[in-house]
Structures are given as structure tokens and as C-alpha cells.
Design a protein around this nucleic acid. Structure first.
Lengths: 329, 329
DNA sequence: CTGTTAGCGCCTTCAT
DNA sequence: ATGAAGGCGCTAACAG
């Protein structure tokens, strides 16, 4: 294995000099820079990131913490987009990423998690799918022992940033579109998981809309479950004239109930998952670019790890009308 | 950060002794073991895996290479199960895992990939979804620079193992069940991707069945695409009396075509994905335990990294009858 | 059975 | 602007 030592010898300079040009330190003449880079080329040198991590206290090792339910295929799609978006971007930026699931830390306290992460020389973390109930993670954030980026959770401090789309506005927009198109008044809103950050933001959105349009709004919690949404629709959709759901999966559940009851109500979803193609009905939904969000999160983490201050980053979204797929009906 | 040095001091022994008990070396008295372990407890010591990786040439850093199409939600489910199965098991066994996608290595040659992996102190890799066309990866395997486990690809050598379910037999069994139940004779078989290892094994299975039962067998390649399977079914299903598909997704495509043509033919799938619940019809399929396969792969890699010889591991599967879900029809 | 010592590959003061 | 030297935390001979 070719090491920095070989490069140094080959270029006729000291090891430390090589290290300096590798890490873009100042005070290196253009001439030596050139020599070193050439040696790197010729020897096909690839710096050993493990050694770098051990030596420096500010390495590029990053953890992905995934706290998303891996039970539903709809969500798998989202998680995969998060993962691949992050990993691709991280690789591009020369960061090492290690992936974890919340379940691994289930019975551990903050100190244990911190120790574990530190033992891995991890200096930055990206957290997906954190809810208000994840007290341990919140402590982790508050301790600021790591640079962190939260995806879809509105918490930030000097060493923590938040990256998310404006859920409130998105819910407002997609629901409004559906309601205006169909001239509705009585709304059944099937919300997500109680104590979920995203759920609450979306709730705010629909509430604001109800206010603005003077709607009759009924709110039920479907916990992001297709089945629960289905049951809710069974019980309450009949004397409403539109069903607004906080996720596509719940929208599917609601639609099924409506079909079984043999009544028509416009439904709108949220997420823009591929699975919607299987829903069998036309509906509006919010398309989020999950890979893009994840990629932005990595950039944000990089920014933090280089001395940036925690902040909030809001990304865009688009409203999409799913095509009518009556093939399966 | 508490290091091995602190533990040594606290326990009143040498650093190397601590290292020995940590790594289960022989020749350590029970007494000192006890002392060291106690010190570890009291100090909440967590060994730094990065330092270990740097120091030893046989560390526990492992790479997951994912070569699966991440475009279809059905496959996301499978990939997620692979990933979480592997990561969970790896954590349990004290291995560090780094996740990669084939796409990252697209325009790299074997040497570059090898260098990159080595620079990461990676000594073992698990490869998912490799096909016959992935020449570079095959070279990587043949060079035996890394201990490797291939999932669903029948290649092995002294430092490479294969873990997979018996695809040939599974295809045979599920097709037979469907055919016997419905007393069929003329079979339309929609195969997967050309040059895919799994595809070929399944093909062998259906061919053997055709032989054994004296069936009239037509084979078409659907490339694991729902749309292509749909088109194939449109063209050829009419004068067959059963459609056997090499994946659930294709089975859905075929079923849609049948419905649109308003004819009934029994269909059988392969994989056991959750999405089948949305298919709208009853069908037989093969349920594979992807997380289990992945977990087994990690164990196998561990075995290899500890001096084991490459071998083939065949896992089980079950035939499953998807429930009738006419809700959406 | 235990301790001493020399690295692993790189980063980072501190002199020069 | 450059180089020498001392670690980072751990492993692995080698003595004792």
C-alpha cells in the first residue's frame, strides 16, 4: 500500500509537506505543490482515511441515524432515497458515512451513544425521522458533542442545523388546490403520528387553510397507517366532502374505504411516492425530493464541521397530480 | 476520551494486557481478566475501532456494495431489508459497515476500487445484486484481495462465499403448486433480466418443471419490469392457461394486463414483497427472508475474515399464498 | 503469564 | 516555506 511516506520520498519533500498540500494548508509554494500532486498522481496515492481520522480530531466521518419505520414498503422508498442521496453526496465530498438505525440505540442512554459514536471517530451526524418522543436523541442534540443536521425536525442550535421542506405551506397548498378544484367545505383531515414534528407542521397548514377558507374541519390521527386511515374514512368520510391525508399511504387507505362504501370523495395525499401509481385514483399530492433533501443535509453538515453555525434550511416542493390509473380497478 | 491506557492504569496492568483480554487472546489469567473487565466497566471504556483498524491488518471494517436498481418501490423494500439485516447483524458482531452503491464505482477500474477500499481499511465486502455483466466486480472477486460474500450470485473461491436461497428449486415449487392447483398445461413464463444469475437459476427451475410435468412452456424476458411483463402478457397470455413470473412486480404487471383483457389466468410471483397486497388478486409467491439472507451473509463474512474458506450457503424459503384483496378492484 | 517496544498512516506544533 | 518529531489509540511481536 502506497503511503504518504512514499509520496514524500517520490516528490523529494518531507511527509509533513505532503500532508499540507493534501489538506490545502497555506504556506506551501506552488512549485512544491506541483511536485507533490504529480507524485500523488504517479503513485496512485489514496490517503488512508482511517489514519487521518485517528490522527486529526476533525475528520470526515459521518453517521446516518435512521429512525424511520421500516415496515411499510411506501416508507422504504423514502428511506432508500434518503440513504442513497446522503451516501452519494458524502462520497462526492470525501466523507465516510456509517449508517445506523434508531433501534440499535434503543436501550442506550445519551452517554453510551456519545461514547460509541466517539469511539468510531464520528464527528457529524444526520438524523432522519426524529419525533418529539425521542428524548435521548434530543439530549444528544442539546449536548452539542457532535455537529448535527436534523432532517424534518425543527430543532437547531450553534452546532445543529435543520433541513426540511416547508411542511406547513405544502399541506396548505395541496389541500387548497384539491378543495378549490372540487368546491368542498367539509373536510376530513387524517393526520399523521401524534408528536411527530412533521405531523404538527402539516396540521398547522390545514388549520390555517380552514381558517382562511372558512372550512368545517374534522381532524383524526391516522398514525401514518393505511389501515387506520381506512377505518377513519369508513367512520367519518360519509358526511364530509373531501378527505385530506398527511401521507400518500393513508390516502390509499382512505380511498379504499371510499370505494368499498361506493361513494366518491376527492382525496389528497402527501409525499409523492411511487406507490401512488397503484392507488387506482387520481389525486393531488406533494412531491418531495428526498434524495435532494438528504444531499442538502450532507452539505449542511459539512458546513457545520468546518466551523459554520447551526441554522434552518428550507427546501422546495411541488404539487403533483397523480395520473389516473384505472387499469387495476 | 477514555483510552486503553486509562484502563491499563486503572487495572494496574500493561496496555498490551488490556488489549489481550479485549481481543480474547489466550494466555491471560482469569484474575487479570477480571481486573481488566472491571476497569473497563468502571471507566465505561469503548475501544476506538478506528485506531484498531489502523493498527491491525485484520480489522472489522466491512463494505456493503449495493447493485440494485433503486428505481422501483418494490425493490426498495428488498434493498432496505438487505441493508438493515446486514447492519443490525454487523453491529451485533462488532463490525463497522460502510455502504456503497455500484453507481459510485461506475467509471473506476478494479485497481482504483481496490485502492479506495484499502484506503478505508476495509477487509471484507458483501455484494448484492451482481450480474454477469459486472465484469469489474467479478475481477475484484477473482483477485481475492478482500474477503467477500456474494448474495444471490453463484461465485466462490477460497476467499469468497456465496449466500443464497435455492432459486431453482423455489421457482420449481411455486410454479408447480400453481399449475397443479389449476390443472394447467400451457405456461407463459416471464423471466427476469438476461444475464442475471438469479434469472438463470429460476429459468432452470421452470424448465425442469416443464420437463417433469410435460408442460408446454413459452419463455419471455420481462427484465423485472412491471411494464414489460404487462406487455408480454398482453401479447401472449391469451392462449396460455397460466402465467408464471420471476418476480412479484412482473406478476402485478401481468395481472393488470389480464384484467384489462378481461380474461382470467392464474398468475404466480416470486419474492413476497409487501406490494403484493396491492395487487388485487390472489396468487402464489415465494417469500424470501431478505434480512435473514443478509444477516447470514455477515456471519459468513465474519467466518471468512477469521480464516474460513469460501463456500456456498443455501438458505430456505417458503411458498406463500397472498390473500385476496378485492378491496381495490 | 505479563510488560516493553515498535509501529499502523497521518496530522500538527515547533524549530529551522 | 520546509522539515523533524511527537503523538492519535491500538495491535503484535518479542522479551522476560
Amino acid at each position: 500500500m502506497v503511503s504518504i511516506k512514499d509520496v514524500a520520498k517520490h516528490a523529494g519533500v518531507a511527509i509533513s509537506t505532503v500532508s499540507k498540500v493534501l489538506n490545502d494548508y497555506p504556506n506551501v509554494s506552488e512549485e512544491t505543490k506541483r511536485k507533490v500532486n504529480q507524485a500523488v498522481q504517479e503513485l496512485n496515492f489514496v490517503p488512508n482515511s482511517v489514519a487521518a481520522a485517528l490522527s486529526s480530531k476533525q475528520s470526515g466521518r459521518v453517521a446516518l441515524l435512521l429512525g424511520l419505520n421500516t415496515k411499510t414498503q411506501a416508507i422504504d422508498e423514502i428511506v432508500m432515497q434518503y440513504i442513497s442521496g446522503a451516501i452519494n453526496k458524502a462520497m462526492e465530498m470525501g466523507l465516510d458515512v456509517i449508517t445506523f438505525f434508531f433501534s440499535m440505540f434503543e436501550n442506550k442512554n445519551v452517554e453510551e451513544i456519545t461514547r460509541y459514536l466517539k469511539a468510531q471517530s464520528i464527528h457529524g451526524i444526520i438524523i432522519y425521522g426524529m419525533s418529539k418522543e425521542d428524548k435521548v436523541l434530543q439530549k444528544l442534540i442539546n449536548m452539542q458533542e457532535f455537529k448535527a443536521v436534523l432532517v424534518d425536525a425543527p430543532l437547531y442550535n450553534p452546532s445543529t442545523s435543520t433541513v426540511w421542506v416547508n411542511q406547513e405551506q405544502a399541506q396548505y397548498d395541496v389541500a387548497k388546490k384539491t378543495i378549490v378544484e372540487n368546491k368542498c367545505k367539509k373536510v376530513l383531515y387524517i393526520a399523521g403520528k401524534k408528536n411527530g414534528y412533521v405531523t404538527e407542521e402539516r396540521l398547522k397548514g390545514i388549520k390555517r387553510l380552514a381558517q382562511d377558507m372558512d372550512l368545517d374541519l374534522m381532524i383524526k390521527h391516522g398514525e401514518f397507517s393505511e389501515l387506520q386511515a381506512r377505518n377513519i374514512a369508513f367512520r367519518f368520510a360519509k358526511n364530509k366532502d373531501v378527505v385530506v391525508c398527511a401521507s400518500d399511504l393513508m390516502a390509499i387507505g382512505a380511498m379504499r374505504a371510499l370505494m368499498e362504501m361506493d361513494i366518491f370523495r376527492p382525496v389528497c395525499g402527501f409525499d409523492g411516492i411511487t406507490l401512488m401509481g397503484y392507488a387506482g385514483k387520481q389525486m393531488n399530492t406533494i412531491r418531495q425530493n428526498f434524495a435532494g433533501v438528504s444531499s442538502a443535509a450532507v452539505e449542511e453538515l459539512h458546513y457545520l464541521m468546518n466551523g459554520g453555525e447551526g441554522r434552518e434550511k428550507v427546501l422546495g416542493y411541488t404539487i403533483e397530480r397523480m395520473k389516473y390509473m384505472d387499469i387495476i380497478c
